[in-house]
């Protein structure tokens, strides 16, 4: 009896699972209204950066331009919580320049005598905390929309590098029949199509470049994207360089390992293949 149960149990359990699944599979499906945003949503545009690829590095001049765009346009609403002023040294800024940049960004502190809330000039070790004290203040100033922190934006979206560029250059007039609610804007590169942020880069020369590059909207969008690639992955160049050395080293070591392996096995494997039956 026990043996019979043991014999039948798998069939019974398996049968029940299979039946439950097949009943579900053959159940007629309710008609689904397709989400209209899917048809409007566009894949990020093709655009390349110097940081792409195995040998990708940062173009410091471009990062500095992108930083300028961030400071003069994005920083009005967006923070860079993960980035400290001292990190700007990687963009080629001198310690004195960094101190000057930091100084302009007041930081919250307490009054040393009274303990009341106060502000002090920023230090290089401070971070880009942005213009709002907290989320409530940020929402209150932006029609209840929260300007996200940009530190990791290029890693926090699908194809993030291209996404930032596409979003900045992707504002358009809504197609006929698509209603954009009051206070929102049409941008097919944004996941839900209607975005609260108005087009931030609107006209050529909005940001003055000092290195002779022509500040077209396209150029500014590219530069600030490159800057945000850096804020999201500041160790990218180090990573690419270390990786190159590591892979070359490992390839040689593996090659030597393969030769050693062949040598060790030579008597057993490779000779029998040639036909020396006796030693097997």
């Amino acid at each position: 009896m026990g043996r019979l149960i043991a014999f039948l149990a798998p069939f019974a359990i398996g049968g029940v699972f299979v039946l439950a699944l097949l009943v579900g599979a053959f159940m007629p499906r309710d008609a689904v209204t397709p989400d209209p945003t899917i048809a409007l949503h566009k894949e990020a545009k093709e655009v390349s950066f110097k940081s792409d690829g195995v040998f990708g590095t940062f173009d410091k001049a471009q990062l500095q331009r992108g930083f300028k765009v961030y400071q003069e346009v994005c920083a009005a609403c967006h923070s860079l919580h993960q980035v400290a002023f001292r990190d700007l040294a990687a963009l080629g800024f001198t310690p004195a320049e960094i101190k000057a940049i930091a100084k302009k960004n007041d930081q919250p502190t307490i009054d040393e005598k009274t303990g009341d809330a106060a502000t002090r000039p920023g230090l290089p070790s401070d971070k880009f905390y942005g213009p709002y004290a907290n989320e409530v203040a940020a929402r209150a100033a932006n029609n209840n929309a929260l300007p996200p922190d940009l530190s990791l934006m290029t890693k926090a979206r699908e194809h993030g590098n291209r996404y930032v560029y596409s979003l900045l250059t992707g504002y358009a007039n809504a197609p006929a029949g698509w209603a954009v609610p009051q206070g929102l804007h049409y941008n097919p590169y944004f996941k839900s199509i209607n975005i609260a942020m108005p087009a931030p880069l609107t006209s050529e020369g909005q940001v003055e470049y000092t290195d002779g590059t022509k500040p077209t909207v396209d150029q500014m969008a590219k530069d600030v994207s490159a800057f945000l690639i850096w804020t999201a992955e500041p160790k990218l160049v180090e990573r690419h360089r270390t990786g190159f050395g590591a892979v070359i080293f490992l390839l040689i070591m593996t090659g030597l390992g393969y030769l050693s392996y062949r040598r060790v096995w030579a008597e057993i494997k490779y000779k029998t293949k040639k036909g020396e039956v006796a030693s097997a």
Binding site: G243, A246, T254
Partner: peptide, 17 residues
């Protein structure tokens, strides 16, 4: 050891790139 070399090479490619 040879297998380990292949493994670490693939691992390094993903970690670094």
């Amino acid at each position: 050891f040879f297998g380990l070399g292949v493994y670490f090479t693939l691992f390094a490619i993903v970690v670094f790139y």
